[in-house]
Amino acid sequence: MDHDSILKINDLKTYFKIDDQKVVKAVDGVSFEVPKGKTLGIVGESGSGKSITALSILQLLDEPGEIVGGEILFNGDNLIEKSIPEMRKIRGNQISMIFQEPMTSLNPVHTIGNQISETIDIHQKLSRTESKKKTIELLELVGIPSPEKRIKQYPFELSGGMRQRVMIAIALASNPELLIADEPTTALDVTIQAQILELIKDLQDQLGMSVMLITHDLGVVAETCDYVAVMYAGKVVEYSDVETLFEDPKHPYTVGLLNSLPRHDIKQEELTPIDGMVPSPFEMPVGCRFAPRCPHATDLCREKLPSLWELNKDQEVRCWIYTEEWDGDQEVKVSDSLNLA
């Protein structure tokens, strides 16, 4: 795919070495791009490696996680080759990140104001009063009422939604080019989620930043993303623009996800779940990682790992069905009830 991309990840591998025998290949050859000014959604279930991918970008991995291969090109620069001090200049400055748990992501012993101005002070040369002014502006920007009062408050005095707004304010302190949001609304109630997603969209329009949104919620993806990468067991299985993904999903896993999702907006008789469960990280299948759960799988799938093929300029899929080698059935379809919607 040829986009003007802010971030381009090629064959990223992040492994966790548990001991000499055991290695968890949490991210195992992931490639995708975040087009400039757009929102890329990374969607997947637990254990898919989506959060580890995000943490790898800023090199915020916990031990024993380690990037063992691949490239992370940010504006053409490979971040993997950067030194720690160089990475620090990028973190919170050109690339910011917000996390899933607003309740625990802010330091309980520092005021809201100090936690925001800290980021400003690291990356910008501002006087104390300018920094305070900017802090108040940021709180206003993220829609926190009476910011002059809030800067003196501590995180426990704020609700979850307000704390996530503060996290966003911290992330925006230096006008980042890329915002990585790791399940930013998962811990929030749905009416508050709506507010936060709206806020991220608004800010993106205002500031022109690119967003990488990690989520397990297909609804959130449909409403906020321009492009989507679907991850399964450490690999991207499908990458496309959001409309194509929902209209014409290609990978049996994507289809399975859509079929098993209970919907509030339409009436469904029966859900079609995906059989079985995610493979253990210690016993990854040799062939396609989804093969053990895939209703279409053949011996080819079980023996050989497919690569991520480019189907057309907007869609890539990691599945044998779309290759010339394929001789099984080709019907990969979402349930009829979803087509009516």
Binding site: D62, R88, R91, G92, S105, L106, N107, E118, M167
Partner: peptide
């Protein structure tokens, strides 16, 4: 291993600041 320590690192502060300003007091 708390989330807010990761937040501090994601801001771009040095390890020294992470330890003394963010971790020690807690």
């Amino acid at each position: 291993s708390q989330d807010y320590i990761r937040t501090a690192r994601a801001k771009g502060v040095t390890e020294k600041v992470v330890i003394y300003r963010h971790a020690l007091r807690n």
